[in-house]
Simulated scan of single mutants.
Amino acid sequence: MHKLREVQTAALGGLLFFALTRPCPAIAEEAGTSGKLLLTGGVSQVEGAAGGGLTPWAVIGGYGTRDQVGANAFYTRVNLPDYHLDDAGVMVGLYDRVELSYAQQRFNTEDVGTALGLGHGFTFRQDVVGVKVRLFGDAVLEQDSWLPQVSVGAQYKKNNQDAIVKFVGARRSQGTDYYIDATKLFLAQSLLVNATVRFTKANQIGILGFGGDKHNGYQAELEGSVAYLLSRQWAIGAEYRMKPDNLGIAREDDWYDAFVAWAPSKHVSLTVAYADLGNIVIKDHQRGLYASVQVGF
C-alpha cells in the first residue's frame, strides 16, 4: 500500500515537473488574462477538470493563453430519480500548460439510504484533487494541422466513508485515476471532438470506493465528447463514459449525456444536460437533469 502511494505521488510530481520545466513558445500577447475564444476552455467536469460534464478534455481550463493565467469556480447539481449529487470546486490554468483543480462531491442517497439501513439522505462525500499537463498541440490555433492537442492528467480521490465502501466490497476508500486526452477543434466546421483513455479502479467514479471483489487492478476505460458550436456563445453536444464493473453487489453501467452550453461572456457559463447514469447500487434507470454554472476568467 505504501509503495502504491509512493508511485502515485511520484507520478503527480513528475507531471508538474514536466510542465514547469518544458519551454513554451511565446505568442503575441502581453501577460494578463482571458485571451482565449469563448467556450474553448470547456466547462467544469464532475471531477473538477476542464472539459465536458462527464469527461475531461485536453484543453487547459480558464481563458488564459500561454502568457496568461485563468481560473474558474463551479457548482453542479445532478438530479436523479433516487439520488442527487452536489458538486463544487475551483480550477486554475497556468500559461495554457498546467491545470490544477479541486472538487468536492456530495452524493445524497435520499430514500435509498433508508432502504440500505444508512438513514434517509445519507451522504457520501468525496474530495478530488487534479492536475493536467498539456504535452503538445493546440486545439484552437493549429487549424492547418490534423494533430490534436494532447494532455495527460491525474485525479486523486478520497471518500469519507471508508467502512461503508469496504463493507460493500471495495478494497479502498481512496485512489488515483490517470488519463490521457486528445482534443481537436475544427473551426471551419464548428466541431470539437475529444477522446480520453482513463486508467482507473474507481467504483461510481469513487463514490463507492476503489477496486472490488470482481476486479482490483487498473482498467483502461474509454471516454468521448462531441460538441457543435452553434455560435460564439452556444454549443450542443453529447458524451459517453465507460466505467469499470468491480463490485459483485452493485452492477455498474456506462454513462451518457446530451448537453447545451451557453457562455454569454468569458466570466460565466451555464450547462444543462440530460444524463443517463444507468444502475446505481439497487436502483436502475437513473436518468435526470444535470445543471452547472461556472464563473471565472
Results as ranks from 00 to 15, higher is better:
209 G>A: 08
221 E>Q: 15
232 R>S: 14
215 H>G: 07
223 E>S: 14
208 L>F: 14
205 I>G: 08
205 I>Q: 13
229 L>Q: 15
239 E>T: 07
207 I>V: 15
238 A>G: 12
210 F>S: 02
207 I>G: 05
226 V>H: 03
228 Y>K: 09
224 G>D: 04
227 A>C: 00
213 D>H: 03
230 L>D: 06
232 R>Q: 15
228 Y>E: 05
235 A>R: 09
239 E>I: 06
211 G>M: 08
234 W>Y: 05
215 H>Q: 11
231 S>V: 02
212 G>E: 09
238 A>H: 00
223 E>Y: 00
236 I>E: 04
239 E>H: 08
237 G>F: 04
208 L>K: 01
227 A>W: 06
236 I>R: 08
223 E>W: 00
211 G>Q: 05
237 G>T: 00
203 N>V: 13
212 G>F: 08
221 E>G: 08
212 G>N: 09
206 G>Y: 12
204 Q>G: 07
229 L>P: 01
229 L>N: 15
207 I>H: 03
236 I>N: 05
232 R>E: 15
217 G>N: 14
212 G>T: 10
224 G>N: 01
212 G>W: 00
221 E>A: 13
223 E>T: 08
211 G>L: 01
235 A>E: 07
223 E>I: 02
216 N>A: 12
238 A>N: 03
221 E>C: 15
221 E>K: 15
233 Q>R: 14
223 E>C: 07
227 A>S: 14
203 N>M: 05
210 F>V: 00
214 K>E: 12
235 A>Q: 10
222 L>T: 03
212 G>P: 10
222 L>N: 04
207 I>W: 12
216 N>L: 02
219 Q>N: 08
206 G>T: 02
210 F>C: 06
208 L>E: 11
210 F>Q: 03
223 E>P: 04
228 Y>F: 14
215 H>C: 01
214 K>Q: 12
218 Y>C: 07
230 L>W: 10
211 G>N: 08
236 I>V: 14
213 D>K: 04
214 K>F: 00
218 Y>H: 13
210 F>K: 03
235 A>K: 05
210 F>N: 02
214 K>I: 09
213 D>L: 02
226 V>Y: 06
225 S>C: 04
205 I>W: 11
228 Y>C: 06
203 N>Q: 09
237 G>P: 03
210 F>G: 04
207 I>L: 15
210 F>T: 02
